[in-house]
């Protein structure tokens, strides 16, 4: 699922920082493990009996995450529990069905006030594993024109296909639309409205990817219900 020699190239510092801060605020990952070295040390020690050197890094990570959650006395929600406890072979098979080898996934979030890409993430998979992590910077001068992103998205997709891999799924959206979607309560999913308004472009958007994203959003909401004091940070510029 993750290549131990994963290449991370042309990673735009601000895009990466904003994305990781957003993920951290959504999932509390930093507070759970990263910000407390003692907890990570304890999780690594507790996971030791279940870790092997020849494991997929994603499998290693879930062993440590399970140990960290147990150490923190946190009960994972159903989706996270499934991720933590299902046989890894099943997860790998689902991953392969979701995302074919030799293709890429792309996320672009545009700050329309500044006419700039607020964040981007481009991933490529090969031989069953994530093998490339990059951002819009990999396209150089062919990067997305943020001031006309709705019309330029197709050209950027084509550029990604030439430079990275054919795009299996891509999401282009405004920053406001992303947060409107993330913050809308379950049952009031505004995605259709946002798409109709042209604030979110999903093209291509295979149904399996759509289903996985919907599940991911449900996971975020499940966690937010567990931690009502946490607020989604809109990220810093």
């Amino acid at each position: 699922m993750i290549d131990p020699e994963l290449e991370a190239v042309d990673v735009h510092p601000e895009h990466w920082l904003r994305l990781t801060r957003l993920i951290d605020s959504l999932f509390g990952g930093g507070r759970t493990i990263w910000s407390e070295p003692d907890r990570l040390a304890r999780a690594l020690a507790a996971a030791a009996p279940r870790v092997r050197a020849d494991m997929d890094p994603a499998d290693q990570a879930r062993q440590v995450l399970a140990a960290a959650l147990a150490d923190a006395g946190r009960t994972p929600g159903p989706l996270l529990a499934a991720w933590l406890h299902l046989p890894f072979g099943l997860l790998q098979a689902a991953f392969d069905r979701l995302w074919p080898d030799g293709t890429a996934l792309a996320l672009y979030v545009v700050d329309e006030d500044l006419d700039e890409v607020w964040s981007s993430l481009i991933l490529r998979k090969a031989r069953g594993s994530l093998e490339l992590l990059t951002t819009d910077r990999c396209l150089g001068a062919d990067g997305l024109d943020a001031s006309a992103w709705r019309t330029d998205a197709a050209r950027a997709r084509a550029a990604l296909a030439r430079r990275v891999a054919p795009v299996h799924a891509a999401c282009f959206c405004s920053r406001e639309a992303l947060f409107a979607w993330l913050e809308a309560p379950p049952g009031a999913d505004p995605l259709a409205r946002l798409r109709a308004a042209g604030d979110v472009l999903l093209e291509p958007w295979p149904w399996r990817v759509a289903g996985a994203v919907a599940l991911g959003r449900a996971l975020v909401w499940a966690r937010r219900r567990l931690r009502p004091q946490d607020e989604v940070e809109h990220g810093s510029r």
């Binding site: 993750i2 290549d3 131990p4 020699e5 994963l6 990570l40 690594l44 020690a45 996971a47 030791a48 009996p49 870790v51 050197a53 890094p57 290693q60 990570a61 440590v64």
Partner: peptide, 18 residues
């Protein structure tokens, strides 16, 4: 090794190593 004789682990890019 830990007290049980198992390797201890350390996260490095992109995996755990002994």
């Amino acid at each position: 090794r830990d007290d049980a004789g198992r390797p201890r682990w350390l996260p490095v890019p992109w995996r755990l190593v002994p």
